[in-house]
């Protein structure tokens, strides 16, 4: 069996694009298997306060979709792990769907996560995703129930399993029956399943890695970025290393 994966999330441009670029290098070096980069949006409705504030900081610091693309293109020459964007429908649609995904391909983006694009609306960008070979990552949630197998059958890249109700953010405990959710996915597809929302400690990461193929951590990393600002590179490196060790040991 393959080693369990650790997936790290950072908000692009928080506190600025240079720091995000440095973070990509160090997060890969620390052992992350995939990195999600958030394209900042003014109204991220699936995010809790930590990532909401990171979006606000990034936009205030002047991050735009264009200069984020330029940074990723530069970083891509060095970074080897898969890179995935996370953003909302409006920044994609307004940029121009074709133009957006063409730029994704040109800067070496492997996939995209769009929290406000459910299964029923995925036709909105599916054609462009296919044309430019960007995997459209599907999400499943604790409320998905009978939708899980339908979603999993058509899923690409990996399935993002939302661990808990609510928005992104650190939680003390995850109570969802993740095992059953993962089993439903696996009953129809061999696609990897990674669990995100609420994971912050190595113990939690270990717990979810025991039932899934990987753990996704966002808010806990973004919190370190907020706390240390420009000096966040080393603390984030140390944190990601610790988390990767935890999931690896499963």
């Amino acid at each position: 069996m393959r080693e369990k994966a650790f997936i790290a999330f950072v908000t692009g441009g928080d506190p600025n694009l240079d720091i995000t670029e440095q973070l990509l290098y160090k997060i890969e070096e620390a052992g992350a298997d995939l990195i999600e980069i958030g394209i900042p949006f003014s109204d991220p409705i699936a995010e809790g306060p930590v990532i909401q504030e990171a979006n606000e900081r990034a936009l205030k610091a002047g991050c735009t979709t264009d200069n984020l693309f330029a940074m990723v293109k530069r970083a891509r020459k060095t970074v080897k792990v898969p890179l995935v964007f996370l953003t909302y429908m409006n920044p994609i649609y307004t940029y121009g769907k074709k133009r957006f995904f063409e730029a994704c391909r040109d800067c070496g983006i492997d996939g995209i996560i769009v929290p406000d694009l459910p299964f029923e609306e995925k036709e909105e960008i599916l054609k462009e995703c296919k044309e430019f070979e960007v995997a459209l990552i599907s999400l499943i949630a604790p409320t998905s129930k009978e939708r899980i197998t339908r979603i999993a059958k058509e899923a690409e890249g990996f399935v993002y399993c939302v661990s808990s109700l609510g928005v992104t953010g650190i939680r003390s405990k995850i109570t969802t029956d993740l095992k059953s959710m993962v089993a439903l996915v696996k009953s129809v597809s061999a696609i990897p399943v990674a669990v995100g929302f609420g994971i912050a400690t190595p113990e939690q990461a270990k717990e979810v890695a025991a039932v899934a193929d990987g753990a996704i951590v966002g808010s806990a990393i973004v919190k370190i970025v907020k706390e240390y600002g420009a000096g966040c590179i080393e603390p984030v490196y140390a944190y990601v290393r610790k988390m990767k060790q935890a999931v690896k040991s499963v």
Binding site: P115, E124, A141, T143, S144, R147
Partner: peptide, 21 residues
């Protein structure tokens, strides 16, 4: 059809809310 008014409308909500909607 499916909540559309010409090209407008739809239901672009997070998966967590889809069953509720």
């Amino acid at each position: 059809m499916n909540g559309r008014y010409g090209p407008f409308g739809g239901r672009y909500v997070p998966e967590t809310l889809m069953n509720a909607v």
